[in-house]
Design a protein around this nucleic acid. Sequence first.
DNA 1: CACATTTACTAAATCGATTTAGCACATTTA
DNA 2: TAAATGTGCTAAATCGATTTAGTAAATGTG
Lengths: 342, 342
Amino acid sequence: MKKKASIHDIARQLKVSATTVSFVLNGKAEEKRISSDLEKRIMKYVRETGYQPNHVAKSLRTGKSKIIGMLVEDISDPFFSSIARVIEGNAYKLGYKIFYSSTENDGEKTRALIKVLRERQVDGYIIAPPPGIEEEVKSLMNDNLPVILFDRYFLSLETTNVIVDNFGGSHAAIKHFLENGYKNIAFVTLDSSQTQMHDRLKGYIKAIAGNKLKQCVCKIPYAMKQDKIVEAIRLFLEKHPEIDAVLFGTNYLAVSGLEALHQLGLKIPSDVAVIGFDDNTHFSLFSPAITAVAQPVQEISETVIKKLIARLSGKEKLAEKGTIVLPVKLIVRESSLPRRKK
Amino acid sequence: MKKKASIHDIARQLKVSATTVSFVLNGKAEEKRISSDLEKRIMKYVRETGYQPNHVAKSLRTGKSKIIGMLVEDISDPFFSSIARVIEGNAYKLGYKIFYSSTENDGEKTRALIKVLRERQVDGYIIAPPPGIEEEVKSLMNDNLPVILFDRYFLSLETTNVIVDNFGGSHAAIKHFLENGYKNIAFVTLDSSQTQMHDRLKGYIKAIAGNKLKQCVCKIPYAMKQDKIVEAIRLFLEKHPEIDAVLFGTNYLAVSGLEALHQLGLKIPSDVAVIGFDDNTHFSLFSPAITAVAQPVQEISETVIKKLIARLSGKEKLAEKGTIVLPVKLIVRESSLPRRKK
DNA sequence: CACATTTACTAAATCGATTTAGCACATTTA
DNA sequence: TAAATGTGCTAAATCGATTTAGTAAATGTG
C-alpha cells in the first residue's frame, strides 16, 4: 500500500513550488500569472500520474466540503427516497454530493446527525425535521449555514420551506368523496402536530364542517409497528360501522388500512371507499386501484435543490426565506368511485 | 457568526497545552498520566463551552473518517433502501456513519462516486457493483481498504461478498410452478451478465431442462424506462400465447409485468400464474396476492455490516474473504396457486 | 546523597491542501 | 538613468486536530 502523492510530491518532482501547482490545479494559472508553458507541464504531469488532491485537507483549509447533508424521516419510504434520488442527481451535476440519513422522526437521533454533519463541515442542509429540533435549526441559521426544510416546517422559525398544499389535498379528497355520494367519511391520520399532518387534518375538518357532516378521526400514535397499526385501524373501523369512506393521512397508513379492510372482509369501494394521501407506484396495480393525493416529487426536489444552490452561490434574490407551497393532484382511481347499490 | 473554538482556544483558556486537552478528549488521560484533577477541569470546561472537535482536521491527521461509503443501484428501490436503512442503524451504534449514493448501475457514475469516497477518506466500502468496475474495486483492495460487495460480485476478484441463493431461488420458484400444474413457464429477466441475474437464469434453466420442458426467456435491456418495459413484456406475452406461468427476475420487472398482464386482460393465476424474484411490502396486498422469492433483507444487512466491522477492527479471523450465500424463501401467495379448470 | 525512575505535562512536527505577502528580474516610463 | 510597473514564481503561515519526543520536578533506591 503505497501512500498517495501530495501536492508537495508533485511540486518536488517538477521542481516548482506547491503554490504554483495549487494555482494551476485550481484554474488560477492565468490570474496568478503562471506561464502557460509551466501550466501545461504541470497539467500533463498531474494527468499522467493520476494525482488526486486530498479533499479532507482542502476542506480543512477552505472550510467548504461540497457536500450537502440531507435528513429525511425514513430513506426506505418511497416518498423520501424518490426525492432523495432526484436531489442527489441534480446536486451531482452541480458538483455537490449528498450525504443522507434517516431521522426516524426522532429528535435525539436527528440532533446527533446534525452534529455529525456540522463536524464534517457540510455546506448546506436539507431537512424534513422531526418535532423538537427548533433549537438546532435555529443554531444552524445563526451560524449562517444554508438550511432548507421540506415536507414540514416550524411555524416558530423563519426558514426556507418547501411543502405541498396539504390542506387543499385533503380538502379535495373529501370533496371528491362527497361528489361520489359518500357521507360518513373518516380520516385516519397520525397523532402528530407536525405541520403537514396538521394541515391535512384541517383540510378534512373544513370540508366536513362545511357540509355539516360528522367528523370521525382516528389518530395513530407515532412509531407504532405496522401490525399494531393494522389492528388499531381495524378496531376503529369496527367501532364505527357507519363509515363509508376513509382518507388515509400517509402512504403507510393507507397500506395498513387496506390490510385492515381486507381482514374485515370489507369490499372497496362498495363497503368502504378509500383515498390515500401521498401516491405510491403500486397503488395503480392494486385491485381496485387506489385513488390518491399525489405529491409532486419531481417539483419538490427541484425546488429544494434550486433554493439551496441559490443560497450556496450567494444569489440572495432567489434565496429569500419563506414557504413555497406546491400543488398536489388528486389521482382518481377505482377505490373512490361511486358505490354500486347493495 | 462567531467562529468555532479550536482545541488551542480551549488550551489557552485553561492555561494548559493543546496536547493535554487532546489526550483528555481522547480518553487517554490515564495512559498519558494526566492528573485526574486536571482531567476533570478540562472535561468540565469542554462540557460547559460545548466545544466540538473539528473532525475534518481529525481525519486529515489520522487518515480515518468513521464514515462508511455505501453504493447501491438505486436508493429508491425498496430492496436497497431497506438494506441501507438497517446497515445505517447498525453502523450508527458502532460509531460509524453511512454515506450512501445510487450508482444507477452506471460504471462511469460509480467510478466518480468511488473517487469522491476515497477523497473523503471513508474507512470502508459497501458496494452493489455495476458491471465494469473491477479495476476500481481491485484498486481499493490493493490499497488495503475494506470492501464488501453485496447482491452481486465479480467472479474475477477475490472479494468478500454477501449474496443470496439466486440459483436456488429461481429453481424453487419453477419447481413450485410445476407442482401446481404449470408447464409453459417463462422467465422475464434483465439482459445482464451480472452474477445475481446470471444465477437466477441458471436456476430457471436447470429446473426447466431437468423436467424436459421448453425454455422461454425474455431479456429486457438495462435502463429501459418503465413504460417501455411494460410494452416489451406485453409483446413477449402476445408472441407466446402458450405461456401459463411467468417468473419475473426482479421486483420492478414483476411490477411492470403485472401491468402488462392487466393490459392484456389476462387473469392471474387462471390465465397466467406469476412469481416475482424479490418480495415487496405490497405484494401481499395485490389481488391476487403475489407469490415471491423473498430475500432476507435483515440478514443480508447484518452480515454485510458484521463483515465490514470485522475488517475495520482488524478481526482477521472473521474478516476472511469469500462469498457468503444466504438462503431465500419462497412466499407462496395466490398468484401461483393451481389454476381452476377453465 | 547521588542516581534512577516516575509523574505530569508540553513544544513542535505533522497531515495536505490554500493563500498572503513578497522576491527577483525584466521592461516601461519620465 | 532612476523610478515605476509588470512578470513569473515561491516561502511561509494557516486550517485544527494528533502524536512523538521530550523536559522539569517529585519521588524512590541503595
